[in-house]
Design a protein around this nucleic acid. Sequence first.
DNA 1: TGTACATCAGTGAACGCGCGTTCACTGATGTAC
DNA 2: TGTACATCAGTGAACGCGCGTTCACTGATGTAC
Lengths: 187, 187
Amino acid sequence: MPPRYLDTREALLDAGEIVATYHGLAGLSVNRVVAEAHVAKGTFYVHFADRDAFLDAMHARFHARVREHVLAAVRDLDPGADLLERATAAYLDVCLENPAVKALAVEARGDPELSSRFAERSASLGTLSEPSFIALGWQSPKIAARLYQAMVSEASMLELEAAKRLPAVRRTLNAWLRAGAPIAAER
Amino acid sequence: MPPRYLDTREALLDAGEIVATYHGLAGLSVNRVVAEAHVAKGTFYVHFADRDAFLDAMHARFHARVREHVLAAVRDLDPGADLLERATAAYLDVCLENPAVKALAVEARGDPELSSRFAERSASLGTLSEPSFIALGWQSPKIAARLYQAMVSEASMLELEAAKRLPAVRRTLNAWLRAGAPIAAER
DNA sequence: TGTACATCAGTGAACGCGCGTTCACTGATGTAC
DNA sequence: TGTACATCAGTGAACGCGCGTTCACTGATGTAC
């Protein structure tokens, strides 16, 4: 049997996801989280230094899930359009399974304090795709990677609204991915 | 001389932009806004029904500015890549002049309440670009328009971080714009 | 096996604070006569 | 021109509320002897 310590910590993070689903980042209060997790308020501070540390932990857990699935999806693939297509599909699938945290990540972008906390983790995903944009011949692979990530993130929001995979959206993403490079390289 | 009524209302909205710059949406409290505008707390409620109405007014004012500049930029242009390029440039320029509200608009996306309030205005901008994506031969012009808008929004964030126009970013956007269509049409 | 003690996740009342909102009031300006 | 009244943007003290955080305490579990 695993120590109860980890159970409670995970239960708080789970509760955070449920609260975020219904109330967004602004409504993600310690009060609501402990109520949802059915633990005392003080228990929250046994596991997290403060509210910000809790949000950070939520983001870290989500990011770890994304990273794991994406890495598994592209294992043994060389940088290029195929890798990006597979990575994108894996990313969109994970987001569909974690709707609350995905929305939270979007919302956090506007908060100066939070966005800097989350930035490093998010950037590490960009690093993963950059070699592929180099391989595709983009003149500014870093920029292309970041703009592409923005499209994928938007695609994820569309899928979350629909609560299911949207093949037309994924097809459009893919078309942009495979067509964009040549002309950029010509410039 | 214009009536003082409008002066104060505009002063409150201006103050809101300043507060948003330093504290984000979460830190955009009525207290801070009235302090920044140098008016009494009660004055705020002379001009706005509540805090949400104020945020709505900020978004509306920003959106009107964007719309005005973008429409002026594409006047007399037929739908197509040139129109989109010009509209994009105009949009990015306006965002550079209104850093606070742009950040606020991004942050509001995570708030269930606010995002629905803002959605209609934002959608009206998408409507403006859709004919161009049809003209470019995209199979799913609505989706392509929305994903492109996400790229432009991300480009704007990059420019806001740098606090200046970034030609490489605009070039990359443009490359994606002009190259993406053909393959999508073939499918 | 039984007893004394240490550890530590969990508890919940209490705190001070800033929040959004209200409302009786002020005082400058315009209008009536 | 002078006086009485109406209008209405602006005022700021006061409100109740939920927030994040603290801390002395509890009680179950493990360890020492």
